[in-house]
Structures are given as structure tokens and as C-alpha cells.
Design a binder for these strands. Structure first.
Lengths: 228, 228
DNA sequence: GATCGATGTCTTGTATGGTAGTATATTTCG
DNA sequence: CGAAATATACTACCATACAAGACATCGATC
């Protein structure tokens, strides 16, 4: 019934890395449902590769708390934990507040221009392409860390951010409207450009607060996707 | 010349998990020197196991940025990057400040008692056993997160904390004296017990600031251990 | 009919062989 | 003698085979 799905020929990165990226995307976007069992052998045959790279991809996914490997039993897409999402937001807020405060002090005019450019791009794709917007959103927050001279600090946030992204992908409707998010991004940039750390902090807190305002509603709407 | 070093019989966790823990410890403590090449086959023969579990351990170590896997070339213990350590401290400070502020508001009396107990233990081992103290230090900071109801938030910090710990293990002499650290711990607990978030924040910032005060000195002292 | 047990079939964990790529030492040629 | 070509000894990567635990199904026994 199912045919072999080929991986794009990519001699640059290993098969394990490619399958890892692929699975991670599928989990975050919800194509692989929480609670679903993943099988090394099933996925390996589906992509026409051996079990080994799949196994290595599982290990990395387990490190990011996206799957749970249960020895001799199976590997499962972890259900979303409301508490974990809120904790992820807590960590992200703490780090990102510190980041924008530094950015407000240290950001170069070039970095600020880059941020404005990203916001402008977000406006142009705002229409319907949610995937493109989320990619730009990711780029925006990464650029914030770059502007603060804390590029590597973003890596720590990026890991836990996946848990928040999963919620976002669950429901476009319940999420904050895109134009509203863009306005919040602009407020952050304005505060940085004005060299006002307090205002930048307030803007970030407001931004991150709103992102998860809809969490309880979504959790009620999709009970089988969440823990317990 | 070298004999086989057996792993402790531990049927609970897999060989891969055991060898991962072991190697991680050895790297953080400096038993495996930065820049040193690690070989799947060499380690596997040394511990009397196959290459497979070693390989999986390498993958997990690479995720924590403790080793660098270079395809078809080798796997190397990454040299310490001053910038990375400072960024790790930056992230840790941001998160831990947020944690103790919440702890000052929410911590139960039981949690506060547990914190005091840990500080007391630290006093008793303070004499000479540095390993024991560092374990208690780890437990203390973890308990802080627990007291704030953000246990899972500590995981994000724990990863990057390894980079800071490597520096600590480099030089006991250059590091802040243990009794001084204990006093700082006590100040944090006191602030939480007094339900004073601002004081708790100040105490944490002072604590983390001092930990890396000696970083430039150590970097000059051990140039081959650091990047570039 | 209920309960206990053997067994078949899943799963992940481990071992091992082969391959391709890289770095280095060696040889060969200009 | 110097430099390019080649042999060699590594490496990580992937595929494959086997082992061992977990679980469901079925059957025998009480």
C-alpha cells in the first residue's frame, strides 16, 4: 500500500541528520500525532534506508523531548504537557528579556535595520502563508539574540521553543492574529532602536504572554493531544 | 598495554546510557582533555563493548556540545570557548533570577527547609572533598527550581551548565573559595525565606558573577584548553 | 468459566562487517 | 632536491544480523 518515500539527494549531511530534521518537522507540525508510536523498522522501510540512521534520529529527538524511547517497548511521540509548555515559555521569557535589554544597549544600526527588514517581510507574507510567517518569526527572534551579541544563547531557547511551536501549529484560529504579532514585533524593535531597555522588556513580556493566552482553550479543544 | 575497564553491572540502564554518563563526567572533569581525539573503536575495546553504544553516546555528547563529530575524520573533545562560557552564564543568570523571584513568592516552607539542609550539608563537606561539594552545589540549584515550581525549567540550564563546570574543574585554586560560595547560597535562601524577590535576584546575580570572575585568568593559564 | 502459562510477534539494544571519505606517510617522477 | 602521485591506515557512516525484553494471543489446566 505504501511506497518508498525518497529522501532528497543531499550529500552534504548524513542520512541520520536528514531523517532527524524531517521527523522533527513532522512532529512539531503535528503530522505525527502525539501519542503515536514510531517504529525504527517501519520508518526505515518507508524511506528506503536502514534502521541505523533512524535510530540515531530517535536519540536526538528524545534529547529534545519530542519522542520518548521506551526500551523493548517502542518509541512514541510525546503528548504535549501544558506544564512543560508553560515552563518553556517561562525560560524563554527570562532569556529573551535579558537578550532584548542587551540589544537595546548594544545593537548596531545594521542589526536594527535587519530587524526592521524582517518585520517588513512578515507584513508581506502575512496574507495566508502561515509556514512562511513562522519561519520569519523564528528568524526574527534569532536576530534579536544576534543583535545582542548572544547568538549562541539562542540555541538554548531554540530547543525548548519546539514545545511552544507545537501548540501554535495545533490551531491557527485560536492563536493570536498575525498582524497583532507583527505589531508586537515592531514595538520591540522600536524600543531597541530608542535604546530603551525597560520598554523593550515590557514589549517582550507582553508578546510572549499573549502567545500562550490561548493555551487553556486549545488544551480543552484537543484533549487527546495533551498529557493525562 | 591498557586493560579492559569494566562498566559497573547495571542492568537498569543501557550500555549506551552508562558510557554516555561516564564520558560526560570525564570530559567535564577534564580527565579527557579538550582537543583530544576520541575513537569509537578505541573506547569500545577499552570498556569491552561494541562500537554501537559508544557511537550513540557520542551523538548525545555532541548534542550537549561536549564533543564535535567530524564525519570521516574523527570525534574530538571540544575546546572550551570563553564566549560560550560567558553566554552560558548569561542564559543561566537570566533563568535563575526568574526562578528565585518565583521561589521567593511561591516556595513552601518545606522547600525552604530543604534548601537550608543542603547548605548545611555543604558546610560539612567543605573541608576538602571538591567533588562532593560540587554535587551538592548542583543539587542546591536544582532545588531552587523545584522550590519555584519550575523543575523542568532547570533541564534547559543543566545542559549549558556543563560548559561552566568545565572551567570550575580546571582550577580549584583560581575558583571562588568554597566557604564564600556557601555564604552566597545562604544569602539566597534567606532572601527567599524573607519573601524578598529583589534581594533574591541581587543575591543570585552576585553569586553567578563571582563564579566566573576568574575566567580570564584561567583562560590565560591554560591556553591549550581554550579555543584559538 | 476463570486463571495461569507457553508461545509468537512485536519492540529496542547490541555486535559486526563493509564502505567511503580523509589525513598522512611513502614513493615516484620531474 | 622538491613536488606531485600513490599507498596505507585510520575515521565515522550505514547496513545487517542477532539478542533480549515486553506484550498479546491462544491454549491447556484447574
Amino acid at each position: 500500500m505504501s511506497t518508498i518515500i525518497p529522501l532528497r539527494p543531499d550529500n552534504q549531511s548524513s542520512i541520520a541528520a536528514q531523517i532527524h530534521r524531517r521527523l522533527r518537522e513532522d512532529i512539531v507540525r503535528g503530522a505525527l500525532a502525539p501519542g503515536q508510536a514510531l517504529s525504527e523498522s517501519e520508518i526505515s522501510t518507508r524511506y528506503g534506508i536502514s534502521r541505523q540512521p533512524v535510530r540515531e534520529a530517535f536519540i536526538r529527538l528524545a534529547n529534545d523531548n519530542l519522542v520518548s524511547i521506551q526500551p523493548q517497548r517502542g518509541t512514541f511521540v510525546v503528548r504535549i504537557s501544558v506544564k512543560d509548555v508553560m515552563d518553556a515559555r517561562f525560560v524563554r521569557e527570562a532569556v529573551e528579556v535579558a537578550v532584548v535589554r542587551e540589544a537595546a544597549r548594544n545593537a548596531t544600526t545594521a542589526a536594527i535595520a535587519a530587524l526592521r527588514e524582517l518585520v517588513e517581510c512578515q507584513r508581506q507574507v502575512a496574507a495566508g502563508d502561515n509556514d512562511a510567517f513562522l519561519a520569519l518569526d523564528e528568524a526574527f527572534h534569532q536576530e534579536l539574540a544576534h543583535a545582542a551579541g548572544r547568538r549562541s544563547a539562542w540555541q538554548a531557547v531554540d530547543r525548548i521553543k519546539a514545545q511552544m511551536d507545537r501548540v501554535r501549529y495545533l490551531s491557527y484560529e485560536a492563536a493570536t492574529p498575525v498582524d497583532r504579532l507583527i505589531a508586537q514585533h515592531e514595538r520591540i524593535v522600536d524600543a531597541i532602536a530608542a535604546r530603551n531597555p525597560d520598554e523593550a522588556e515590557a514589549a517582550v513580556r507582553a508578546h510572549l504572554e499573549e502567545i500562550l493566552e490561548s493555551l487553556p482553550e486549545i488544551a480543552r479543544q484537543y484533549p487527546e493531544v495533551f498529557e493525562r
